[in-house]
């Protein structure tokens, strides 16, 4: 055992402790993510008028919105909670249930616009997700890379933007919902997972 190198490592760790003598509790990160996701989701949603044509009924509309809200807020907590693997798995279950509810609740109403006219919805979803996803990646850089954790954080980051589309967009066809609402949501999460693998980590702690 090289005592000198061990001593150097010990000194480096103590210097780090001196720089930040107060431990940062895990819930600080959770609160930050919840706040950003909530502000972005609510902000975008209130910018547009609600549109009820897309949905077959108030129950499914409400369930879809509740699922997205739960993902945006609960997913953010699950993503950073220490030892929260069961919560993260549960979040993925909420994601699947929300997708099913949204598709089940699709009205089938076609406003008559060309199919690729729906690109605007996809771009809105991606634009609305940029800030929450960026903040999520910044927070997750303090954790060891973990694909499930990042996937849940990415889904939470995209849920606010999707809530806006869910409440605003009149197009209720399955193809539109799949391609321009749900696919961008999943895309945001997968891009987040890919980026997290490339980004450096400030800590290797789970």
């Amino acid at each position: 055992m090289n005592d000198e190198s061990l001593e150097a490592i010990r000194r480096a760790a103590l210097a780090e402790l001196e720089r930040a003598p107060k431990a940062r509790p895990w819930w600080v990160d959770a609160v930050a993510l919840v706040a950003v996701n909530a502000l972005c989701g609510l902000g975008w949603s209130t910018l547009f008028a609600f549109n009820l044509v897309q949905h077959t009924g108030p129950v499914l509309r409400g369930l879809g919105a509740a699922g997205l809200g739960l993902m945006a807020l609960g997913g953010a907590v699950a993503a950073v909670r220490p030892g929260g693997r069961p919560l993260r798995v549960l979040s993925l279950g909420v994601f699947v249930a929300t997708v099913l509810v949204m598709l089940w609740g699709a009205s089938g109403f076609d406003p008559g616009t060309p199919f690729f006219g729906g690109v605007g919805c996809g771009l809105s979803e991606l634009t609305a997700s940029v800030v929450p996803a960026g903040v999520s990646l910044w927070v997750l850089s303090r954790f060891a890379p973990d694909a499930v954790r990042t996937l849940v954080a990415g889904l939470a980051a995209g849920a606010g933007g999707l809530l806006t589309l869910h409440l605003h967009c009149p197009n209720g066809t399955l193809a539109h919902l799949l391609v321009f609402h749900l696919a961008p949501w999943v895309l945001v999460s997968l891009v987040a997972v890919g980026l997290r693998r490339k980004l450096p980590s400030a800590s290797w702690a789970p």
């Binding site: 402790l17 940062r24 220490p82 290797w204």
Partner: peptide, 23 residues
Amino acid sequence: ADDLLQATFLSVVRARGRFSRGA
């Protein structure tokens, strides 16, 4: 191994607030 050891203990310092009581 020493580089990794340093990264490990720096992580312990930085993430100590995430260590769950009872773990």
